[in-house]
Amino acid sequence: MASPSDESFVEFVRDASPQLLRTAWFVCGDPVQAEELVQAALERVYVRWRRIDHGAATAYARKVVLNHHIDTRRRRSREVLTDRTPERAAAEHDVEDTDALVRALATLAPRERQVVVLRHYVDLSEHEVADTLGVGLGTVKSSASRGLAKLRELLVPEGENHA
């Protein structure tokens, strides 16, 4: 039988995982890697489950996901497993806008991507983004500015850029 603590954790995973998965996907651009990032992050959350504030667990899990994403990128020089072709004409799930958004996000530097996703998908304030990523407020502002500028070039139809 699962303990009450474990039952609350399972409930937390059910509630928090959809947004965590989408956040991870926007950041890494790969659904399989997103699942792995979230699974690994939630396992880490479980280790601290009895000690952390359950009300802040989602924020903590999000922070772990993003840190784990950076760590994963740093290990890229090592042999990695892949089950996807690096090029895809049209994935089954894709619609045009999603494709464009994810492709555009992929052109951003990792930190810019994280900031933009946290600000405009997760709807965190600049202070919350800074806290989540462990960076200064100035870094958040500059990363957001650069990231949005790049996205504007890529996503806003020509003619609307300077409106």
Partner: peptide
């Protein structure tokens, strides 16, 4: 955005 099917 229409995200792919993902779950844990």
């Amino acid at each position: 955005a229409s995200t792919p099917t993902m779950s844990v």
